[in-house]
Amino acid sequence: MGKSAPMNPFWLCAFLVYSLHIFQVPTMSWAVNSLDFAVRGPSFNVPHISHQKKRSPRADMEAESMRRLALLEKEVLQDRLALQRDEARRAKASVDQLKQRIKDLEAELEGARCEGKAIYAEMSRQCQNLQEAMQSRSRQLEEEVKGLRQQLELCQREAEAAQREAKQALGERDQTLAQLRAHVADMEAKYEEILHDSLDRLLAKLRVVKPQWDGAVLRLHARLKEDLRQFGLNPLDL
Rank of each mutant, 00 (worst) to 15 (best):
F23D: 02
K74W: 05
Q175E: 13
D237I: 02
S94H: 14
I194N: 09
S43K: 15
C127G: 15
E226G: 00
G2R: 12
S138N: 13
I194H: 11
G41H: 02
P26Y: 02
D186E: 14
G111N: 15
W11G: 01
L71K: 14
R89E: 10
A166P: 06
D60Q: 07
G232S: 04
E192N: 14
L81M: 08
L109V: 10
L203N: 14
E64P: 01
R139C: 06
L12T: 05
E122I: 00
Q126F: 05
R68L: 07
K99F: 02
S43G: 10
S124M: 12
A216C: 07
S136Q: 14
R58V: 01
R68K: 13
M123R: 15
S136W: 07
I22W: 02
R173I: 05
Q100V: 04
R229N: 03
K167T: 12
A133H: 11
E75D: 14
E110V: 11
E172L: 11
A133C: 03
Q97V: 00
I22K: 06
E87T: 01
R137N: 06
L83R: 15
S138A: 11
G171V: 03
K190G: 01
L72P: 03
C13A: 11
R219V: 05
C127I: 15
E153Q: 13
L218T: 10
K99T: 03
L206F: 10
C155W: 12
D104K: 09
A5I: 06
S124E: 15
A216D: 10
S4C: 06
H21K: 13
A88Y: 08
